[in-house]
Design a protein around this nucleic acid. Sequence first.
DNA 1: TCTCTCATGTAAGTCGTTACATGATTTC
DNA 2: GAAATCATGTAACGACTTACATGAGAGA
Lengths: 178, 178
Amino acid sequence: MSLPHAILTALIEKPSSGLELARRFDRSIRYFWSATHQQIYRELKQLEQAGLIRARDEEVVAQGQRKTYEVLGPGREELKRWVSAAQDLKPTRDPMLLRVRAAAVVGVDGLTGELEHHLAQHKRQLEEYLEIERRDFVDYTTAETRLQHLVLRAGVGLETFWIEWLTVALDTVRDVAP
Amino acid sequence: MSLPHAILTALIEKPSSGLELARRFDRSIRYFWSATHQQIYRELKQLEQAGLIRARDEEVVAQGQRKTYEVLGPGREELKRWVSAAQDLKPTRDPMLLRVRAAAVVGVDGLTGELEHHLAQHKRQLEEYLEIERRDFVDYTTAETRLQHLVLRAGVGLETFWIEWLTVALDTVRDVAP
DNA sequence: TCTCTCATGTAAGTCGTTACATGATTTC
DNA sequence: GAAATCATGTAACGACTTACATGAGAGA
């Protein structure tokens, strides 16, 4: 039940159309919650029906016409409620860890290539985060930017962890199957 | 497409019935791939139809009768293929990071309780991992145990990261909303 | 016999993915 | 006027979740 709240957050930050939202998800929100434009359109419709958001230009009904959505009072209230609601940790599902475990029983043939590939992707992602940090988080003081920076630091920390782990994993895999 | 491979791995490690598999997922496999017994039974049926596994006691057909599955040759081949197949990183979806981002726009009311709750859960999980490490990974040498240990170290590293991050997050949240 | 646990399963619904459809606007 | 892009949407499927159903055996 997080996608509606991701959309509410994005719309409070800046009222947008479906496609603009899809682009913002692709550009930055996907770092912690990814979504395709199909998911977004479906969810926008449901949020509008639930009275949490509304389209600004209600007169435009023709298909292909841009609709800009904004968050209504009940939408903001729902988001506040959700922020502090009790939620358990969702169960882990990491295919790479599963693959290493599988390699333990069927052999590590061909695994190094995949580990290298993932290592490269995580290094690229880390660079992207550090770039954003240098660009957007120098000399800030507001509560809002401090919290946004906190989220970015999670990204930096996670990528750093995976880079270290994959490096060790590559050493181990090369060692057990030379 | 990871659940069938999680099941194949578990069945190679030790042939089991559906319920035994569900218990083993709950006990250890869930650390990197969780699954419920409903998912497992459905997948077992599909794997059997695909000829990747088979029930040992084929004569027992009555409902409620225990069926022990084992992996066939094609099942092992499929797992080998999957271990080295090219796979992209799956997109991130972390509700807690999303909540902090949402708190940046609607306020941090009630968030500390949730951060504390998650911190406690991650600390408990880390302890569990370290306990397993002390118990099962002292003085080992085989390729299999080294790879299994690698997976466990990922769990330890991730929990350690989250504990550090949540601690900083709590400081920040308390600071911006005293 | 009653209840509890074991073991397998069905049903319904939500969330996410992939592929495609359609009209409007801009650009050459 | 043709082609590319913008913008919104439909359809179908697969993965996962939640709740419930059913029968067998074990112990009180």
